[in-house]
Design a protein around this nucleic acid. Sequence first.
DNA 1: GGTATATACCTTGGAGTGATAGGTATATGG
DNA 2: CCATATACCTATCACTCCAAGGTATATACC
Lengths: 115, 115
Amino acid sequence: MGDGASSFTSGIPELLVLRLIQEREMYGYELVQAIRDRSDDAIAFGEGVIYPLLHALEQGGALSSRRKSVNGRSRVYYVLTAAGARRLADLASTWTRLADAVRTILSGEDHALAL
Amino acid sequence: MGDGASSFTSGIPELLVLRLIQEREMYGYELVQAIRDRSDDAIAFGEGVIYPLLHALEQGGALSSRRKSVNGRSRVYYVLTAAGARRLADLASTWTRLADAVRTILSGEDHALAL
DNA sequence: GGTATATACCTTGGAGTGATAGGTATATGG
DNA sequence: CCATATACCTATCACTCCAAGGTATATACC
């Protein structure tokens, strides 16, 4: 699993969640809306995607959480760990490479272009 | 399944295969290598991805095939149908929208930016 | 002539991801 | 007081891709 050219089954939820939390600590419900808002409705993950993902990321050591009470409401805020930052950098670079490759093929450009 | 904001489970193999065949008729084995070549190894689908996909696309009416013998070798060439062209346009626009959204969020830009 | 590699097609089985659909509880607005 | 928004959570299903294997012919090498 993972020589670099394989396995790109999106991972977009993970990528976006890590990226957003990198900016500032956030909680699940907030992430669901932030993704929808910032993507202008192009991307909309349900809570059924985000919450399990947050738990997996925390268990994997990419995130850590603390419970905070706001307005009598209990929220679980997540922050990025050092490992999470590395994971993010990795996913982002993989994504960029992939997106560039797709764009190149879509545009009909040839592979071997002169430097 | 398909209101526009959901279901983006990549579909990259389908998108790329349709796009390549749009340029000229191609056969399965050729597609496997063309994708690897043009993406500079960023994307590499095995034959186990391409062949079943080609069959599904033909059954769905997006492609049609004809058998041709070259050098005593039997190849199955695929061409795009009108329905396939529509499907391609659809996937391409969905992909572009998605990729733009991801890029926006990765870059940390805000959603509501003045025009 | 024999063996390895490249070409060219194919299918089966499994793994992982995300989408749907639920389920709980508290605050706010009408 | 009832509906909606906030905020958390899980279970299940479907789908897509990936790995692995299986067949057969042509070509290159020794």
